[in-house]
């Protein structure tokens, strides 16, 4: 399916290309270019054109992952209520494919840490993160999970990035639901542009881009 020589169509809004775009350009010194199908082969090719898309595995996989993120229902404090509000009717997050808040970490791929993380809760949070299967992402929602927020004292962890790797920080106290949706969209951007791991076979090129599913740290 991969066609490295085919020109990338800059006008295409999706990562997909049609068969027509994937076909190599005709050689310049052809004498006559017939219009319309002349042989059986051409006729078959024209029929197939209507129903085949060419793309890369990576684009499809990233597209699927980005548009169907399943968050873990992990509301801790006040930010949880704004997170519930994005599931509500006014700020509808199911437009982004993320309305199924899973109860179990085994079925979720996004952990939105919504609220302040106390020192008693920190080991629980780490355990939940470990229980989530790859690929997984973390959004630190609100000031408290990004950096400790309003509370700088003995009881609150100063930023959830001390224990889990965070992909997107959404500031606010609490962030408006639009802000959280913007954070989810930024995460979608990140997923769409990341390289994927296809198993134990290492890539030859050194990656400079964020890697999804590496479970770093």
């Amino acid at each position: 399916m991969t066609d490295p020589q085919a020109p990338q169509n800059p006008k295409s809004p999706t990562p997909f290309r049609t068969l027509a775009q994937a076909r190599p350009a005709a050689p310049a010194n052809d004498l006559v270019l017939p219009s319309g199908p002349v042989s059986d082969e051409d006729r078959i090719r024209e029929e197939l054109e209507k129903g085949i898309l060419f793309t890369t595995v990576e684009s499809v996989v990233n597209w699927a992952r980005a548009n169907a993120i399943w968050p873990l229902g992990f509301g801790l404090a006040c930010c949880a209520i704004e997170m519930m509000a994005i599931a509500g009717p006014r700020f509808d997050v199911s437009r982004f494919g993320a309305e199924v808040f899973r109860g179990s970490p085994r079925q979720a791929d996004l952990m939105i840490v919504a609220g302040r993380v106390s020192i008693k809760m920190a080991p629980v949070l780490r355990q939940l993160y470990d229980q989530m299967p790859d690929p997984k992402w973390v959004i630190a929602m609100g000031a408290c999970s990004s950096c400790g927020g309003v509370f700088n004292n003995y009881a609150i962890l100063q930023g959830v990035d001390k224990i889990v790797p965070v992909d997107v920080y959404v500031p606010g106290c609490p962030p408006r639901p639009e802000g959280l949706i913007h954070g989810i969209m930024k995460l979608q951007e990140k997923i769409l542009s990341s390289k994927i791991e296809l198993g134990p076979i290492p890539r030859k090129k050194k990656r400079a881009q964020p890697v999804t599913g590496s479970g770093a740290a």
Binding site: L76, G115, R116, V124, F151, Y154
Partner: peptide, 9 residues
């Protein structure tokens, strides 16, 4: 106690 924030302190 999983959300203890030390507000009184």
């Amino acid at each position: 106690g999983y959300l203890h924030t030390g507000m009184e302190k």
